[in-house]
């Protein structure tokens, strides 16, 4: 325990978390979660099955979900854990534009979990598809197996833009490194420590491993909603437990005809879409031949 207390006192920003360090660490600062004896089997029968319903009539394509996720999870430039896919259809003036918010589907039949050789990708609390950074060897099998393109890999040191030392106007404006150090962030100034406090190595990630949405497991396990759900100003994202017939999403899934992405692949995604992005009424008519 002494080793863990020591870790508590160490400034997060002082620690250089590299995969090598983590494995070598021995007693000092080793993640609590390193080296579980066995991987948990999927718990379908007991516990929660957390899922999300996205109400497209409420969604306005504003991107609050996608952007706020980056702020909550310290996601680096170029990676998106949550996205808004857009399509333009039709020809002027009969044009349509649709926004579709996407994220990891936390599939019940997750191909990424099946493919992971070290069980770094595994099913966890509430049937969330979780990732243990310290077990990841960066083989990218998960990326290849995932049909939704929601997993990214860090080829280089994370947040390279924030590690730079150069100022725009020397002596007068700041630099990324200086700004971070001054406000005592960890690599990025607005670094959110809640992730790292929950699971070591998941605050910023490090070179050579993958990352993806974990349904804000650091919040959800405390009874808090994921950040994207809270941040959506349109109330378009609704969380719930599929195993609870009284939950709001269970009711929504009965009331509307939910769709899921790439249903035919049998991944059993747990992100459901209901209603239409543009629900405007059409005139009553029988049409023509």
């Amino acid at each position: 325990m002494e080793s863990l207390e020591h870790k508590n006192k160490t400034q997060l920003s002082e620690k250089k978390i590299s995969r090598r360090n983590l494995l070598k660490a021995g007693g000092a600062g080793v993640a609590v979660l390193a080296g579980a004896t066995t991987v948990s089997a999927k718990n379908k029968s007991k516990g929660k099955r957390l899922a999300m319903v996205i109400d497209l009539q409420h969604c306005t394509g504003c991107g609050g979900c996608a952007i706020s996720c980056k702020s909550e999870n310290n996601v680096q430039r170029g990676n998106r854990w949550a996205k808004v896919e857009t399509t333009t259809v039709g020809k002027f003036p009969n044009v349509g534009f649709k926004s579709l918010p996407t994220l990891c589907n936390h599939c019940e039949n997750a191909p990424c979990v099946k493919g992971c050789p070290t069980k770094a990708m595994h099913k966890g609390y509430g049937d969330i598809t979780m990732h243990s950074p310290e077990k990841c060897i960066g083989c990218r099998t998960c990326i290849a197996m995932c049909p939704y393109g929601v997993i990214s890999i860090h080829i280089q040191e994370t947040h390279p833009h924030w590690r730079s030392d150069d100022a725009l106007i020397k002596g007068c404006t700041s630099s990324p490194k200086e700004m971070t150090e001054k406000v005592k962030g960890n690599v990025i100034p607005n670094y959110n420590p809640a992730r790292e406090e929950f699971r070591e190595g998941s605050g910023l990630h490090y070179k050579g491993i993958v990352e993806k949405c974990t349904l804000c497991d650091h919040r959800v396990t405390k009874g808090l909603l994921p950040h994207c759900v809270i941040s959506c100003p349109c109330n378009a994202r609704i969380m719930g437990d599929l195993n609870d017939p009284d939950s709001h999403i269970s009711k929504l899934l009965v009331k509307y005809s939910p769709r899921r992405l790439k249903e035919h692949l049998g991944t059993e995604p747990k992100v459901f879409y209901v209603r239409e992005f543009n629900p405007s009424a059409t005139k009553s008519t029988k049409g023509t031949v």
Binding site: C62, G63, G64, A66, I67, S68, K70, S71, A167, L168, I169, C172, T173, S174, S175, P176, E178, M179, T180, V183, G185, I188, P189, N190, S231, P233
Partner: peptide
């Protein structure tokens, strides 16, 4: 709050601030 609000974090900690 709308989506632009989150960018305020990148503004206040903008490394190019005077």
């Amino acid at each position: 709050c709308c989506s632009r609000c989150h960018m305020s974090l990148q503004q206040v900690y903008d490394p190019d601030r005077t």
